[in-house]
Amino acid sequence: MIAREQWTAIAAKDSPETIDQGVSEVRKIREGVGLPPSGGTPDGITFSTNVKAVLANSLDKTGDIVVVWVVYDRFATIRGKGADDDPLRDETTNLIVKWDGSDWKVTTEAKYTAKVKFPHSYDPDSPYAWADGWREVSDG
C-alpha cells in the first residue's frame, strides 16, 4: 500500500503501468531481503544514499521527456548492529521523467524507453564519460 501511494504520487498520470511496475519492483526487493512483500521499513533500519554522478539527456526536441542516469552508493544502518557490512557501491540506474506542466513525473511508456541509449560508464577521470555528459555531484 505504501509503495502504491508513493508511486502514484511520482508517476505520470498518463502512465499507469509505471505505478504497477514500480510496486512490483518494490515487492521483489522486499522479498529478496526476507521482508513481507508490502509494508513499511522495519523498525531500527535506516537507509542512506550517496549520489556520486548524474547524466541527463532529453529524449525529445522539447526537453519535456528526460532520461536521468544516476551513479550511487547505498548504505543501511541497523540499530544495535551498526553500519552495513555489504553496501551497494557504484550502482547505476536510470529513470525517465516527463514534464506535466508543474512537476517532473516518472514514466515507463514504451515509446520513451525505446529511445534510451546506454551512456559510457561513469568514471570521474574519463574524458569519454565527461563528453557523454556525466557530472560529479558535490557532497559539500
Rank of each mutant, 00 (worst) to 15 (best):
S121Y: 07
P127L: 07
G22M: 09
L59V: 06
A76M: 13
R135D: 06
A12Y: 05
K13S: 12
D14S: 14
R27K: 15
Y122V: 02
G101M: 02
E17I: 04
D86K: 12
T8P: 03
A131D: 08
P124M: 03
L88V: 10
W99G: 01
D43C: 02
I45P: 12
T18G: 07
G140Q: 14
G101R: 04
F118H: 11
V68I: 09
D73S: 03
I45V: 15
K111P: 02
N94H: 11
E109L: 03
A131F: 07
K117T: 13
V68W: 00
F47T: 13
G40S: 15
V67Y: 02
T18R: 03
A131Y: 05
T41V: 12
D73M: 07
S24Y: 09
E31V: 10
V26M: 15
D84L: 11
T93E: 10
T18I: 05
T62I: 02
E17M: 10
V26N: 09
A9N: 06
T41F: 05
G80W: 05
G32P: 02
D60M: 02
G63Q: 06
G63L: 03
K115A: 11
E109T: 00
Q21E: 15
E25K: 12
I78A: 14
A83N: 14
V106P: 00
G140D: 12
G40V: 04
N94D: 04
F118R: 12
D14I: 08
E136D: 15
R79E: 15
S24L: 11
